[in-house]
Amino acid sequence: MNQTRRFYSFRSSSTLVVFVTLVVVFSIFTPNHIFINERNIAALGKLFPDLGIIALGIGVLMICGEFDLSVGSVLPFCSFIFAQQMIADFSPFVSFFVSLLVGAILGLINGIITVKTKMPSFITTLGTLMFWRGILYVWSKMMPMSIRTFVPSGSPFQKLMAGNLNAYIPVQVIWFAIFAVILSILLHFHRFGNWIYSTGDNRDAAHAMGIRTDLVKIICFMIVGVLCGFSACMQSVRLGSFAATQGVGFEFKAISACVIGGTSLRGGIGSMTGIFLGALTIPIIDNGLILMRVPVFAISAFIGLATILFVLLNNYIERKTR
């Protein structure tokens, strides 16, 4: 009994329960158990980290009390930079670091605007979402750019970003796991994590205790930017091209993943375990339902429903444990 209470006192427990239930249900009830078929697992593992890696960063930022809607534009922007650098004859590795740097700078800009204007980041990053997309469209003329010749299948960089460890495990999953571990250490064991939580939970108190809350927020925005840069390169290498429509809609999907993982919209509450599971749950619902031959047009409705139910569930658990 006490153990059960303790278990439920962790916010991510509800996510874990739902996650395990989904996996079990889908494994049993999909025709021919196709859900746990290696082809399905490999396909899932190859695709979900594009958004998943960004969601990890968004989770950290939300704990810090801010949102970043601009990811939907920062991602294709970094992808464009990545492609351009390679076309300008830089090696894939150099281009990759330039892309990360650009991501960091765009994050820095988001952070500085938000902190200095004291406007809600929901508004400031909505602005930068539209701004960078406009700039990107003008600059790239929306033309797709092929990068296949620079990162051909089997080249070291291609293997690093879009290769396979074995039949089940695409390398993208490994990257997702690595970022989850790094951010988990940062959030739960590093002193900077305590500053993130304090800033999101009670900014005045954190400030009064000598934490530079503005700086903490800016760094969190930059973490998101760098992850966008990484995800951009990963996606471009897999697709073999830059396309102006990369990242469309990622902003709300990432927030929804974090909310499903038990992250509070008001900041100060959330955990890396929860965010990790949340980032996995959405693609699994999408995939599992289609595999169960649910009409594809209904999928959106299920994900919307799941997001709302999770928020209700988390609020309920919060009240129960208080």
């Binding site: 064991f189 590093h190 900077f192 009064a208």
Partner: peptide, 29 residues
Amino acid sequence: YQEQALAPNLSISRNIFMGREPVKGFGIM
């Protein structure tokens, strides 16, 4: 403070050491 100098959702020990966390190395608390 009048307005509570604590972060409500953080643990007691994380609150007491807020901004002055003892570290073991590499910033790990």
